[in-house]
Amino acid sequence: MSRERALLIIMIVAVCTLITRLIPFVLFGGKRKVPLAVSYLGQILPPAIMATLVVYCLKGANLFSASHGIPEFASAAVTALLHIWKRNVLLSIAAGTLCYMFLVQSVF
């Protein structure tokens, strides 16, 4: 692929990505008052989106593969339980990640 074309492709991806991020601000930004329905959604959506992102991250775990998704779900459980217990973000993330790295590198 020519370098000009590569540059064009990157530009298109950049612009389209920006468009998706701009949409709510173009629709509801400016000086206008934000519609109630939107501020309501803005307020209650984060937990729902976070749930979606967790599912998105764990979607790669294949229950029918050799590892049966054990590294993913075990490490997610370590992270969650430790966080419920200690409430320390960095501790939970470090423990969960180390657990995952150990499992995928040495066990499965």
Binding site: S75, A80, V89, G96
Partner: peptide, 16 residues
């Protein structure tokens, strides 16, 4: 390998 699990773990802690 596997250090990208930090992202998943971050989402889990925020969710909790």
């Amino acid at each position: 390998t596997g250090i990208d699990f930090a992202m998943t773990a971050l989402f889990i802690t925020i969710f909790i």
